[in-house]
Amino acid sequence: MASFINELYKYRYLISELVVRDIKKKYRRSVLGVLWSLLNPLLTMIVTAMIFSNLFRFDIANFPLYLLCGQIIVTFYNESTSFAMSSIIENGSLLKKVYIPKYLFPVSRVISSCVNLFFTLPALFLILIVTTMSLPIASFTFIIPLALMFFFCLGVGLILSTIAVYFRDIFHLYGVFLSVLGYATPVFYPESIVPDKYMFIFKINPLYFYLKAFRQSVYEGQLPEFDVLIVCFGIAVASLCVGIYLFKKYHNNFILYI
């Protein structure tokens, strides 16, 4: 473990350079550049809010904020895990030529999604302040569920990037899985409309817990419940352990398949 942290420290420049590259590439040749990170969730939120407050009415107070919280969590998960999934394959030509610890690629991809997420936070707080005219101190505890979710996504990213090396099908399968997951998470509907017999779907959906804790702090302006945070922590540790185990077991053979 100590040697691992040493290695991570040694390669910190490479990680930061890879993260900068990802972000630069994402906004290359766009006039507004990094502003899009802010505009994108806002515009999506406005469109979705318009549809759902006119077509299907749910009984949710401050719907824009409720929606934006959900979108941010789901987008972060989708982006970071799909991005990490392709990281090993996309950098195949490099890995074949120079020795670099391979986990740096999924790690840097999850970090760049995280940086992207932070660019969207001003939009969230803007909506929070505009719609409630207040800024509870407790809102700032949002960082706890996000930090836990970072490790959860990292674990999932490691698992997916390992599988993707061996089975390219995962790219197509995962797209379908993500849309199922999106609907199984209460992004634009209230939890209460789900019948009791389907509540188990939330219980097996990791995103549900992260979103719940995130909403408790930002949307309700309270400290996230301790039980929820414990679940979030447990899921993060589990996914990270599985991810590290799988990645470690197979990373030496990657080169033969990419």
Partner: peptide, 11 residues
């Protein structure tokens, strides 16, 4: 082993 293996064409 190969010159420029680490180049990113878009940068």
């Amino acid at each position: 082993i190969e010159v420029g293996a680490g180049f990113d064409p878009d940068l």
